[in-house]
Simulated scan of single mutants.
Amino acid sequence: MASIANDRAQQIFSHLANASPSLQGKVCIVTGAGSLHGIGRATVVALAKRGPKVIYATDLTLENLEALAKEIKDTYKVECIPRAVDAASPSAVESVIDDAVAKYGRLDVFFANAGIATGDRLQDEDAESFMNVMRINALSAFLACKHAGAAMLKLGGGKEITGGSIICTASVAGIRSGAGSPEYSASKAAVINLCQTSAFQYGGTNVRVNAICPGLIETGMTKGTFDYARQKGSAHKIGQLNPTKRYGVASEIAHVVAFIASDEASYLNGQAIAVDGGLSASHPIVPGRFH
């Protein structure tokens, strides 16, 4: 047993010694990249800084994507392909993955970021709205785990061993209550469990699956919250419940995603990673006690 453990340790050390701190040569797909202030767009930029071979920047429509692709090519000299993809459509997800594998011989990174949020209370929700949120938020993550993972098991394009990194956007709302509507929170809890279950389904293949759980981040999706606070003159209070005492910005999530996507995170698998300024680290506190 000791010999087996030593051999495994040596394999890990060798892998880390040869691992590039970048995404050089890798093929990446990002969904939900169309919002000008969103996590998806910020992640395309963060990935581009690490020098991959190509990034597919996708969203339901091409709005803002063509300009983003030009910016990535001009600024970072990285090929960026804008594409309209319904992230909750099996055929659309398979199509963009098949295109990447056909053109570049491989798939290495899939960031399943497409999603919607609602602010409805339980009694204001109905079955139709609940299932729509589940379709866009949870089904899209399922399709990413299934189809991207299958593509990552293929060799080609200079890829000599199977593997890759699938990252799905969940939320601190999926970890515990109090951060979103019932349907939104349920969908993000589903994303977390999908990632954890999928990580074991791909055991031994070097395909890693993780969920990233943002806290309160200023994006297009949360614009209403921030606009309301600014109108009321209470913007300075946003994020005061976490120990960092502020809200986050999209690039802070994006750089964590870029790390998870890279070989530097080769032992990070099956995790729900909260990037929330510390909010989810504690139960609600009593001021002046325990801190």
Rank of each mutant, 00 (worst) to 15 (best):
A42H: 04
C195L: 04
I212K: 00
K70S: 12
I212A: 01
T162D: 08
G156N: 04
P21F: 14
A84Y: 09
K26V: 12
A138V: 08
V109A: 09
G119M: 10
F259H: 08
I136K: 01
L107D: 09
P287F: 13
L194D: 04
G149K: 00
S91C: 07
A33R: 01
Y267L: 15
S95L: 15
T43L: 04
T58Q: 01
E252I: 10
Y228K: 09
I212F: 01
L122V: 11
G115N: 02
F290T: 09
V207Q: 04
A42E: 06
T197K: 03
F290S: 11
D74L: 13
P82R: 01
F142C: 03
A250L: 06
G178P: 03
A2N: 10
R121L: 15
F200A: 09
A179M: 11
L241T: 10
T43D: 02
I39E: 02
A141F: 06
S234E: 15
K237R: 07
V275Q: 07
R176C: 10
H291G: 13
A9R: 05
L36Q: 08
I97H: 01
E252S: 05
G277I: 11
Q240D: 12
A170W: 04
A33G: 05
Q24W: 07
Q11C: 13
A100S: 02
G38Y: 01
E218Q: 12
G158C: 07
Q271P: 03
N269Y: 06
A141G: 02
V275G: 04
A100K: 00
L60R: 05
K237A: 12
A114T: 14
Q240T: 12
E125K: 00
A33Y: 03
D86S: 09
N269V: 13
F13H: 07
Y202Q: 07
D7N: 10
S280W: 03
K26Q: 14
V93N: 00
I273F: 00
